[in-house]
Amino acid sequence: MIKEEKWELRLYIAGQTPNSVLALKNITKYCKEHLKGKYTIEVIDLLINPQLAEGDQIFAIPTLVRKVPEPLRKIIGDLSNEDKVLVGLNIRPLSD
């Protein structure tokens, strides 16, 4: 058995904008495919909690933050490029 790894992801959005909706849809899809059962996605809407933007150094929306595993990584944009997201998050495809 490979050591149990867990991905803690945070998606920062600002209201239900097309980019944010798309980003959430994309990351959920990638995680289901590659990280089944080993991930959590926390969605933070900065319109509701603006004070949380400073802590994770958020300036672009949407921003996906990988809190765990370390080191911290950020991917900004609607996450439409799957390869870039997977590489960015250090997720190796499960298949093969």
């Binding site: 920062y12 600002a14 904008t17 980019n19 798309l22 980003a23 900065l46 319109l47 603006p50 004070q51 933007a53 400073e54 150094q57 958020i58 300036f59 672009a60 929306i61 949407p62 921003t63 080191p71 911290l72 990584r73 950020k74 991917i75 900004i76 944009g77 609607d78 996450l79 439409s80 490029n81 870039k84 997201v85 590489v87 960015g88």
Partner: peptide
């Protein structure tokens, strides 16, 4: 004082985005 730290090495860009995060921080 709000220090906006932009670390290129830890950031990837993919697809459309805007700077609403900055706006929200400033507004706050």
């Amino acid at each position: 004082i709000d220090h906006v730290r932009i670390e290129r090495t830890e950031i990837e860009e993919t697809g459309e985005y805007d700077l609403d995060g900055l706006f929200i921080r400033l507004n706050y």
